[in-house]
Amino acid sequence: MTMLLARDTAVGAATSAQRRRRVGNWSGWAFLAPVAIYLALFYAYPLYRNIDLSLRNYTVRSFVRGDAPFIGLTNYQAVLRDPTFGPALTHTIVFTAMSLVFQYSIGLALAVFFNRRFPLSVTLRALFLVPWLLPLIVSASTWSWLLNSESGVVNAGLHALGIAPVDWLTSPTWSLVSVIIANIWIGVPFNLVLLHSGLQAIPVSLYEAAALDGAGGWRRFRHITLPMLRPVTAITLLLGLIYTLKVFDIIWIMTRGGPSDSSTTFATWSYRLGFGNLLPSFGLGAAVGNLLVVTALAFGLIYLRTQRRLHSA
């Protein structure tokens, strides 16, 4: 891939550039200034406002006037004691874990399958990208209709197999499963592309040597593919984790976190607190959101460390 190549040359160029580092200081910052100001204005400031929101007692009126009283960590305590906290935590973990497991295993199976050369392989692999490129609202509303209780094609298919219809989106038992299925569908292409590029980097000679030693397909997969793919696996899973924690659109559009919180995650809960009710509770919403930020950033740091280790290795 172009980017992989570009990076490899970059590593070589970096060492010689290091010596000349001081020279570019002024002009360098002149080119960086727009992005630095942008980061401060449109990342740091909204995030700061978000922390501020979570530490104050906001009503609609004080939100507009900006004079809400400081109440410390009261919002966080209220969130922890809220009856929604337990279910939201469980659902976030289940949603993330199930999505990752299936996205990765299906993505890996497809990557191995498409790693062979056969007619149309490139075109068909490209078509697999479609779910990942579609706007989430398109995917989510399409899945809503596919899974519709009365008129959905999924229940029609089950009926043809002699299975009773399932209330995918309207029963508390199935709503979380439904949004997980839709999210797996959206995430498979991403896993496929990354793992496929990882497979391409494994030298063919390894497989040839193993085949000479009489190792069958499964053993070659277990003892060559999986270990050689470990770095790419780590990156794929960690990135997937960060992306999946963020998922909001799909769940909100398909079930709005319901029925009765059965598919509520931290992301949808935060949105509902801040924007979903007639009387918004921005403070509580921001508090839930900040818990999510801390989790995402924690895994983000693990991701960066992993990547640095892989690079220096």
């Binding site: 980061l39 978000n50 909001f248 921005f282 895994f299």
Partner: peptide, 18 residues
């Protein structure tokens, strides 16, 4: 890189206030 990891819904709430 860190900015990329902040969930959109949190950014949205901050932007709303601003």
């Amino acid at each position: 890189l860190a900015a990329q990891m902040v969930p959109g819904i949190i950014m949205a709430m901050g932007f709303y206030a601003v």
